[in-house]
Simulated assay, not measured.
Amino acid sequence: MTKINAGSVRFDGVVKRFGDVTALKRLDLDIAAGELVTLLGPSGCGKTTTLRLIAGLETASDGRIEIGGEDVTHLTATSRKVSMVFQSYALFPHMSVAQNVAYGLTVGGMRKTEAAQKAEHGLEMVGLAGYGERLPSELSGGQQQRVAVARAIVLEPEVLLLDEPLSNLDAKLRRHVREEIRQIQQRLGLTAVYVTHDQEEAMAVSDRIIVMRNAEIAQAGSPKELYDCPNSAFIADFIGDANLVPVEIDRVDDGQCHFTIGNRRYSTTNALIQAGPAQAVLRPQSINLDNPQMDGLPGEVTAAAYLGREIQYTVETSAGPLFVIAEANARAHKRGDAVSVNIANEAVRLVAN
């Protein structure tokens, strides 16, 4: 399968203003060729503005944008080697699938026979060989999404942009299509910038996630880095489920922080935190519930929900309510049960208030 000539993306001090509103503060960003980077964050954080600046649909107020090492800061969208897959697939209902895929090529002046061949190859790349004569209405939502991807990649972009591409699909189909998009990106060696507000989706598809907040980068890293080592309470709460427990750090010895949760003493390594108030990040999967005679934090189960692969609990403790996720084959507890809450030192991450 032919690989696309992927390009890198670089933002050097890029700022975007709309009148008196700063939609994007000074942004420095590097995306390597062949990397899939997701821009993740709540509404209004600047992620879509960043995507539109790469696409050339917005113009930077300050700074420099490079694609494939070329300065494109002042180039129009049509002069940049990028393609975008939109939230609404924007397929023409009266055109066949093949005609939809070939549309951008023919508008660009390519002969119809050559465009048809490229469209056929594009459909083959996304696993839709033989679907060219169908109408979009004859395809499933996931197949329509793949047609939109095929239409984008036949233009041989250096960068593929995806703006909330799965938001119109139901939950089960979203999981399936995101896997297909990731496989296509890896097979073709595409550079892809993916925008979503869904943290699970971002973790599933990304080489690297850039979490944005208040028009700037809050933290960037691999899905594992962001989950295991959040740099703030916001990141801890936004990436996966987390219990945030206020604590007072008594002392710090060589990066080892000593503190109390409820009536239990803990210590964990975090050289960035000083003595004083902080928040302990407790992932629900890292908390174990034992019988009340065990040596742990006393608690009472106030809610229990069996969800097939796991059981979710809410446990009231002296440190406040804790959300706990246990494997389905673990010992089950019911509402009202007294339990011992056990938290390993290495399972605690401390972040500043």
Rank of each mutant, 00 (worst) to 15 (best):
S137G: 14
S61Y: 04
I153C: 08
E35H: 05
T50P: 07
L155M: 15
T76A: 15
R146W: 08
T78F: 15
G46S: 09
A77D: 09
R80L: 10
E158N: 13
R80S: 07
A129P: 05
E138Q: 15
R64W: 08
E58D: 13
F92M: 12
G63L: 10
L39H: 00
L53S: 03
L75H: 11
A60N: 03
I153S: 06
E58I: 08
R151K: 11
E138S: 13
S61C: 07
E158C: 11
L139C: 04
R111P: 15
G104Q: 07
D62G: 12
V147N: 00
L155Y: 11
L128V: 01
V147W: 00
M110H: 09
Y103F: 15
Q143N: 05
L40A: 03
G34L: 05
T48V: 13
A98C: 10
T78N: 15
R146M: 13
D71W: 01
V107E: 14
L39M: 08
Q143Y: 02
L139E: 01
A150M: 05
C45M: 11
K47H: 10
G69D: 04
L105M: 10
M84F: 12
V107P: 11
A55N: 05
V126L: 04
Q117L: 13
A55W: 02
G69Y: 02
A77I: 07
H121P: 07
V149F: 04
S83K: 02
L105N: 06
A90Y: 09
G56R: 02
T76F: 13
A55V: 03
A55M: 07
G41I: 07
V85P: 04
D62S: 14
L160V: 08
A115V: 00
M95W: 02
A148E: 00
A148H: 01
Q117H: 12
V37N: 01
G109T: 10
T76C: 14
A119H: 00
L91E: 05
L53H: 04
S83R: 03
V147H: 01
E35S: 04
Q87V: 10
F92T: 09
P93T: 03
G104W: 08
L123D: 01
A60G: 05
P157I: 03
P136N: 06
R64F: 10
F86S: 09
K112L: 12
A116D: 13
A119R: 00
S88P: 12
V101C: 03
R146I: 09
D62M: 14
A150T: 05
R134V: 12
A32G: 09
E156M: 11
I153V: 12
T38Q: 03
S137Y: 10
E58Y: 07
A102N: 03
V126R: 00
G130H: 03
S61K: 04
E156I: 05
I67D: 02
S88N: 15
G46Q: 02
T106V: 15
T106N: 13
A115F: 01
V85C: 10
H121M: 15
T106M: 15
P93W: 08
A90T: 12
D30A: 12
A152H: 01
A32V: 09
H94L: 12
T106S: 13
Y103R: 07
L128T: 00
L40K: 02
E70V: 14
